[in-house]
């Protein structure tokens, strides 16, 4: 069984990577979870997961002509399988985004939950691809007008490809946003998963190279992420069918 989720926001700085790893760790208590840094242009998951020194990353798997197996870039960390992406411009330029689908297809065959940390923008094919390929999208927003507007745009893009909304995660919340969440519920195709409070501990987790749930498991923010994960009922998809879908996605040669 596998269900692929894109964790997306439409704008940067909403805490997508923190959310991806936090949801991943929470879901890993009951599922086999694989987390992929699908933001190949502005990768940062490796810093959050203490993987900044690793030799092989997703970039290496995306280089045409190399025959590396996905396992070479898959690291078992914090109870999850983590596939980080490199940050060098050279790596990005060498990478052929078209190969992402086959890499993700291989990963889909051996996991329950696939979380794709997606690019913030919607302006290129490689940026949209994770949202296109996923079964559902988790939309991370801050309770601001630009963030909510961009979240709605991501949802419409996702729907355009038949990708449903699993829910909306309000991040960096500084006060009760119940009324905002209530209003937002009318517009998003999934429930509000949680309101995650803004917290300094998120920054210190990143500095320590640890996911929030490992760095500060008892913090209110970690508890909120666990509630969000609880609110997601993972569907038992057919791993082979998901893999086929990733492989058959038509992506042009050039980005």
């Amino acid at each position: 069984m596998v269900e692929a989720f894109a964790v997306a926001s439409g704008k940067g700085g909403t805490g997508k990577t923190t959310s991806t790893l936090a949801l991943g760790m929470a879901l890993a208590e009951t599922h086999d979870v694989t987390v992929v840094d699908a933001d190949t242009g502005m990768a940062n998951l490796l810093f959050h997961a203490g993987l900044s020194d690793v030799d092989v990353t997703l970039h290496d798997l995306l280089v045409t002509g190399t025959a590396r197996d996905v396992s070479a870039a898959t690291y078992e960390r914090f109870g999850m399988s983590v596939v980080p992406c490199g940050t060098s411009l050279a790596g990005f330029e060498r990478a052929d985004p078209d190969r992402l689908r086959s890499v993700v297809a291989d990963l889909a065959a051996g996991t329950d939950v696939l979380l794709l940390d997606s690019p913030a923008a919607l302006g290129s094919k490689s940026a949209v691809l994770p949202v296109v390929l996923a079964d559902r999208v988790v939309i991370v927003v801050e309770p601001t007008i630009p963030a909510l507007s961009d979240g709605l745009k991501v949802q419409e893009y996702a729907r355009s490809y038949g990708t449903e909304t699993a829910g909306v995660l309000f991040n960096k919340v500084r006060e009760d946003v119940d009324r905002i969440a209530e209003q937002a519920d009318r517009h998003f195709g999934g429930p509000t998963l949680a309101q995650v409070p803004a917290a300094d501990v998120v920054r210190s987790a990143r500095q320590a190279g640890e996911p929030l749930l490992a760095h500060a498991p008892d913090s209110p923010a970690a508890a909120a992420f666990r509630r969000a994960a609880d609110a997601i009922t993972v569907r038992s998809g057919d791993g082979d069918a998901v893999a086929d879908r990733f492989r058959s996605a038509v992506v042009p040669e050039t980005i």
């Binding site: 094919k125 949209v128 745009k153 949802q155 893009y157 729907r159 355009s160 038509v250 992506v251």
Partner: peptide, 17 residues
Amino acid sequence: ARAEAADRAAEWGLGDL
């Protein structure tokens, strides 16, 4: 956003999905 997504789907050759 829907119109933009549809335009880009065609442009990017993601129409098969």
